[in-house]
């Protein structure tokens, strides 16, 4: 990190995307990281469809998930375009002689090739755990996209700006639920605190910079400051405590996952793996 001008007014200071162009292949990897993360959360949340605690919330979580799959498709489509235009190492599908597509990237890459955050592959658990996962992720996504909408990469900026409007609703919905359950009954509070304890170790990774994020996101610590500030505010209102001195897991961004991802992919990719190119 270069030394900065100390006269910067913190209020006016904006997170800037770096002026150094990303190294070759970094942009594709970063897009896949964004696409994989939204796809895996889509797959997890999708399991709630028809099982939500009440009809309105079943509809809410599936609507949020619909936004996520839309974002994921946009990232995959753009990644596929860049991969096909580049002379980088062949994507798994090119080995078979085809071009990369949104579907091939989602269905034909292995666990080690997936770059999603560990947080989103964690189990749905009870409603409390699903809510905590959504809230911690949506707040992160909000501040990340706020930064990416100023990216010099026009298409990335466009997807981020589009998604940001949707994520604004996800943050507000999940924050409402965090407060409602945290500041609800003894049992709901206890379940929330349990969910936070289970998921917290997977939040540190969001702010550990992967190689491919260099030149795309700089000043990742500012992202962390904003994230923790929002989480604290909502947790305080919800009478929930933030765990302290927790060891943070990492690896998801670089393809080292918890065992859960393998199970997700086995189910999600089964049809395409066994019937390559199958269509509706």
């Amino acid at each position: 990190m270069q030394s900065e001008n100390s006269s910067v007014n913190t209020e006016a200071k904006k997170i800037q995307t770096s002026k150094v162009p990303p190294s070759e292949g970094f942009r594709e990897a970063f897009l896949l990281h964004l696409a994989d993360t939204t796809l895996i959360l889509t797959q997890r949340n999708g399991a709630w469809c028809g099982h939500g605690p009440i009809l309105e919330q079943d509809i809410a979580i599936t609507n949020i998930t619909l936004d996520l799959i839309g974002q994921s498709r946009n990232f995959y489509q753009y990644a596929a375009k860049l991969i096909n235009e580049s002379s980088l190492a062949p994507s798994p599908v090119e080995k078979a002689g085809d071009e990369a597509t949104e579907d091939s990237l989602a269905y034909l890459r292995t666990e080690r090739e997936f770059k999603n955050l560990l947080l989103v592959e964690q189990e749905n658990g009870d409603w409390a755990q699903t809510i905590v996962r959504q809230f911690l992720f949506s707040v992160y996504q909000y501040f990340l996209f706020e930064q990416l909408q100023n990216s010099k990469d026009d298409q990335l900026a466009a997807i981020a700006a589009k998604s940001l409007k949707e994520v604004t609703y996800h943050v507000s919905w999940s924050a409402d639920w965090v407060i409602r359950l945290g500041d609800g009954t003894d049992e709901s509070n206890e379940r929330m605190q349990k969910a936070i304890a289970a998921l917290w170790p997977y939040t540190g990774e969001m702010f550990m910079q992967a190689d491919y994020e260099q030149g795309i996101i700089s000043e990742i610590h500012l992202l962390k400051d904003r994230w923790i500030e929002k989480v604290k505010t909502v947790f305080e209102e919800a009478t929930l405590a933030i765990p302290e001195n927790i060891f943070m897991q990492s690896g998801g961004k670089n393809g080292v996952h918890t065992e859960k991802l393998g199970h997700i992919l086995a189910e999600m990719q089964y049809l395409q793996r066994t019937n390559l190119g199958a269509k509706w």
């Binding site: 309105e56 509809i59 809410a60 609507n63 949020i64 619909l66 609703y169 507000s172 919905w173």
Partner: peptide
């Protein structure tokens, strides 16, 4: 407001 998410993505209930 009953729910921020309604029958389609663009509606609230």
């Amino acid at each position: 407001l009953l729910s921020q998410f309604g029958s389609t993505a663009c509606k609230a209930l």
